[in-house]
Design a protein around this nucleic acid. Structure first.
Length: 278
DNA sequence: CAACCCACCTGACTGC
DNA sequence: TGCAGTCAGGTGGGTT
């Protein structure tokens, strides 16, 4: 599930629930996801107060007070979910299937569930955050001021890769996952297979606008399901209804009626309308 | 450096 | 119903 809008939704849910709370318990069901987790160091957060829940790209950054101002870095990978539940004085509930770690802050239990274990959990001091290996070489945020048409135009010059693949390159811009890459190209009227270097300035204007639009719209939609949020990833409702091309191969384009096409590009499923996108 | 390919892991779905 | 095969929304690392 987790593309940027989902991660942003999780971030907001976490902020709402754990900001200002102190870490009371930390438990691990195992010591590794894709890579080992810093189990001891994260256990040692007990007593620290959560000061912020931020996001950089698809990484959640949970900040704490005290020496070094530690930051917990969470990535949801392909199948990760975060649940927040009230626990009050009760003892903690049994582990869910594929729940790998949990952290109790105040009366809130944050539970990390990730069947495929492509996610990540790490810890770094605030000072070392920007140079953390996972974050150091990331491109600009798609919703930030740095990602504009001129920037995209410059970054596409001389590039032969398909524009859809380039949009998914986190060195260029973060947070545009496979679904939103297809959706953005559709909204911009750009064929996803087009060589990035052949985009015009006008195409770049449209693409930047389109990427922003689909991401913002999804965040807003996700945000509406946030109230009394338990776990993000209610991917049933808004998610499916809003998609213009993704997963719609063989179905009619909602704009022109042409048949939506599908191909694998860079090993990822790609969808487009052969009439609307050139 | 760019382009390409693979690995990581499990669940859901398809077709026989 | 069972089983093999296929696919999945992400990212890092290695090779050409």
């Amino acid at each position: 599930m987790p593309e940027l809008p989902e991660v942003e939704t999780v971030r907001r849910g976490l902020a709402q629930r754990i900001l200002g709370e102190r870490v009371r318990e930390v438990e691990f069901a195992r010591a590794d996801l894709r890579r080992p987790m810093p189990v001891a160091a994260i256990r040692a957060l007990r007593g620290r107060r959560c000061t912020a829940c931020d996001r950089r790209s698809k990484y959640l950054l949970i900040r704490f007070d005290g020496v070094g101002e530690p930051v917990v870095i969470v990535h949801l990978g392909m199948s990760g979910r975060v649940f927040v539940e009230d626990v009050h004085g009760r003892s903690l509930p049994p582990w869910r299937p594929h729940e790998h770690w949990r952290m109790r802050l105040g009366d809130r239990l944050v539970r990390y569930v990730d069947p495929r274990r492509f996610g990540a959990l790490d810890l770094v001091d605030a000072e070392g955050l920007a140079s953390h290996p996972l974050l150091a070489s990331l491109g600009p945020e798609p919703l930030g001021p740095e990602f504009d048409a001129e920037y995209l135009f410059a970054r596409t010059r001389g590039r032969k890769v398909a524009i859809k693949q380039l949009l998914m390159d986190a060195h260029v811009v973060v947070g545009v996952g496979n679904i939103y890459a297809s959706e953005s190209c559709f909204r911009a009227g750009v064929r996803p297979s087009r060589a990035a270097g052949r985009l015009t300035r006008a195409d770049c204007v449209k693409l930047v606008d389109a990427a922003r639009h689909v991401l913002e719209r999804s965040i807003r939609a996700g945000g509406t399901t946030l109230r009394d949020y338990v776990g993000v990833a209610e991917d049933s409702g808004w998610f499916q209804r809003e998609l213009a091309v993704y997963g719609r191969a063989g179905e009619p384009c909602r704009v022109c009626g042409a048949t939506i096409r599908h191909a694998v590009m860079g090993q990822r499923a790609t969808y487009w309308c052969p009439r609307c996108q050139r």
